[in-house]
Simulated assay, not measured.
Amino acid sequence: MVQKRVVSIEDRIPKLKQERRKKANRKLIFYLLIFFVLIFIVIYLQSPMSYVKNISVNGLQWLSKEEIINQSEIEENVNFWGVQTKDLEENIISHPQVKEADVSKSFPNTIIMDVTELSHVAYVEMGGKVQPLLENGELLDDVTSSNIHGDVPILKGFKDNHYLQELAGEFSSLSRYVSALISEVKWIPSDSNPYKIKLYMTDGQEVESSIRNLSSNLDSYPSIVSQLDQTKEGIIKIEEGGAVFTPYNVDKEEEEDIEEENEE
C-alpha cells in the first residue's frame, strides 16, 4: 500500500504567503499602470500635443484651401477630440459653390475635408462683367480674366436668367468631351423660338440649336462632324429630328436645296 505524503501546515504557510504577495504585487502593478495611463491622458488632453496640427482639403478646382478652412469655422489650437465633424460639414456646405462635404479625423492630429464643388459650366458676359455660371443655374460675382478656365464656354447676349438656368442644366448633362468643343454660345431668340442659340465650336464649325434638349441633341455632334468633309466649315442645324450642314460658301438658293434634300 502506497503511503501518501503529508505536508504539514508549517510547510504550507510560507508558500501561501508568497502566492498572496505575488497576487498583491500584480494588482498593485495593474492599478499603477491604470493610474499612469490616466495621468498621461489628462496631460495629453491639456497639452498642445492634442491640438489639430494638419488640415487636408481635397477635391478643389475653383475654390482655395484657405476659403474652405475659413468656411468650416474650425478654431485655431482646437483639441483634436473636441472637433465636431458634422458641424464643420454643415458650415462648408453652406458655401454657395459647394455641393457636398465630408469631414473626417485621422489620428493623431489631422482633419481631412473632402469637398465636391458645384461645377462652373460656363462664363456669362453680362453688363460689362464676366460671371461664372454654376451647374445649379446660380451666377457668381464677376471674375478677372486670369481666373477664367478655358475648358468651359463663354455665353453672350443673354438677358434673362430663366434661359441661363435651363442652359446650365443642359451643360451639366453634357459629356466633358463635347463640352470642351464649345467655345462660345450666343442667345439668338426668334418669335417662334425664344430658346434658339448659336454655338461656336473649337473645330471651326457653328451649330444652331435650342436650349431645350441641347445635351441630347449635341450627343450626336462628334458623329455628325466625322461624316463631313474636314476641309469645309459651315453651320450645322441640329434639332430633335436630325441635323443639316450648310457650308459657309453656299448661297441662299443652294442652302434651301440642301435643306429640302435632307427633309426628303
Rank of each mutant, 00 (worst) to 15 (best):
N54C: 02
L88H: 01
L60E: 04
K105S: 03
T85F: 02
E89C: 04
V52R: 00
E254M: 12
S179T: 11
H120D: 01
I29A: 13
L218C: 01
E264L: 11
V103A: 06
D114I: 06
I188D: 14
D257K: 15
N213T: 09
I112R: 09
T144G: 08
I92V: 15
L139G: 05
V83L: 03
G137L: 07
S175T: 15
G234W: 06
A180E: 10
V83M: 02
V37E: 01
I39F: 14
N147F: 11
N249R: 13
I224P: 01
N147E: 14
E138Y: 07
I148W: 08
K15T: 12
G59H: 07
V6H: 15
V115L: 08
I238S: 01
F245D: 00
Q61R: 15
T231I: 04
G82E: 12
K186D: 09
N58F: 04
V57C: 04
D229P: 05
S190M: 10
I92R: 02
F80W: 10
I39Q: 09
Q230P: 13
L155H: 05
E261W: 10
L181D: 07
E254F: 05
K196L: 13
E67V: 08
G234D: 00
N77I: 02
D141W: 08
L140T: 09
A180Y: 10
D160I: 11
T246L: 14
K129N: 03
I111S: 03
W187H: 08
M49W: 15
E67Y: 08
D142H: 12
N77E: 15
E261M: 14
N249P: 02
E89K: 12
R20Y: 13
N91V: 02
M113T: 07
I55L: 05
S226N: 12
D114G: 05
F80C: 02
I69F: 05
S172F: 07
L16A: 12
N70S: 14
Y195H: 12
K198I: 14
L174P: 10
S64N: 07
D251S: 03
F245K: 01
W187I: 00
G127E: 11
E255I: 08
E67H: 08
Y51M: 03
G242M: 05
E67A: 11
D114Y: 05
V225G: 04
K156E: 13
V57N: 01
Y163L: 07
S210G: 03
F80V: 10
S216V: 14
L38N: 12
N262I: 15
F158K: 00
L38R: 08
N161G: 03
H95G: 05
